[in-house]
Nucleic acid binder design. Structure first.
Lengths: 223, 223
DNA sequence: TAGATTGTTAATCGATTAACAATC
DNA sequence: TAGATTGTTAATCGATTAACAATC
């Protein structure tokens, strides 16, 4: 049987964790089934979209009843690869790095930060959430030994490219970048930007529009 | 002259800060002009898209030369509303809250965190980056007095809805949410989710695909 | 002038939405 | 049975890409 390529849009991929959060919540409340219609009510998009999205994970529902919540959770997690927890290296022991280390739920999302690195000699050797901060030079050796695939960049924009270069040289396959800088990576390495300023840009523009509308008695904002 | 509505896609809005980062970098290096072609090289999308995006900000270039960098920076910032810095309240003095407070560049992006709130009595009264943590109950009074429009939610998923309710009651117009929970807000209030798990989902799925490709000798990943 | 680049209009592509038969 | 919901195919909508004239 030929394994067909499942084409998934970035948009769908981004909505799946939203469903997951709600589903896990309902699961804790001992609810067993949910329909797309009911699930869609939690969001500002329709039930057809929810059904389409769930379809890609291979979830199957029953007419009139809906989907078994435990099945959906399992399907989404498997689809995202969150069942096999991946080890990750974090570079940057600043405020953001600390926040990421302190986020206890990452293991639920398939991520396990196993080591922290920094360039600052003052930080090296200190412990953050029970993890020792190590010099960046130690990354290549450790990456190879521990078979780590994911690297998290939590340094300044200026330092980011250099960090990524070390990561790539260390054999890291996927980079999660929190620095507000465009990074250059070789073909075959995955780069995902978690840029806060993108989200802030959307917020700012909408707010600007809203405030202008009020003061200037101008045209309505497209919201 | 009739003020026409400028329809801007969310995608364009999200790319604008990317351009801005690069442009500010070039500006620091005293470069004066740049063409769309040159700017596009920094990203994994084409020059036509860059030109289209810049168009919405009202930027004007000259053939053969390109765009004046200082003009572009001004146009983008104005378009996003980042020239008029907005005051914001931050709720949640945990690790993420601290990281956000410590991010010194927010004022460049039109955001100025003026106060921090928390529910935890142990945190109230302490100082983080020179800002005193106050009880959430004080928010409504302060919001009205200080005319604060933006509220930043940096609390757990369970506490998030409650926090937003207080924000809305306080007269907050735009909510920037970092909690992994779908929030209900009344019409007319802006909600923007900065969810890390969305970004992580994309990364995880790509990595899963990459790793499966290697082991199973299966079909290539759509990257 | 020649060639690169802008500005704008048209074509393509993909994602969202709608429609409807099948099913429990 | 009737009605709600799934699963799937078709239509619409919007964003990206291409094409090309205008311009410096």
């Amino acid at each position: 049987m030929p394994h067909t390529v499942i084409e998934v849009s970035r948009s769908t991929l981004k909505r799946l964790p939203l469903y997951l959060h709600v589903l896990e919540d309902l699961h804790r409340q001992k609810q067993e089934y949910i329909s797309c219609t009911a699930l869609a009510l939690k969001f500002d998009f329709g039930s057809i979209q929810v059904r389409k999205d769930l379809e890609v994970t291979g979830a199957e529902g029953t007419a009139k009843i809906g989907f078994r919540i435990s099945d959906l959770i399992r399907n989404i997690k498997t689809f995202l690869g969150w069942h096999n927890v991946q080890d990750a290296f974090l570079v940057g022991a600043g405020n953001l790095g600390k926040a990421l280390l302190g986020y206890r739920d990452f293991d639920l999302y398939g991520l396990n930060i196993v080591a922290v690195f920094d360039k600052d000699p003052a930080k090296i050797g200190t412990r953050i959430f029970d993890k020792e901060v190590m010099p960046v030079e130690k990354m290549p050796g450790l990456a190879a030994r521990m078979h780590v695939n994911i690297g998290i960049v939590a340094v300044s924009a200026i330092a980011a490219q250099e960090v990524v270069n070390v990561m790539v040289a260390s054999g890291i396959r996927a980079v999660w970048n929190f620095a507000p800088a465009p990074l250059e990576i070789p073909q075959g390495i995955i780069l995902e930007n978690a840029r806060l300023t993108q989200s802030l840009a959307v917020l700012s523009n909408k707010l600007k529009c809203l405030l202008e509308e009020e003061t200037k008695e101008s045209v309505p904002c497209p919201m």
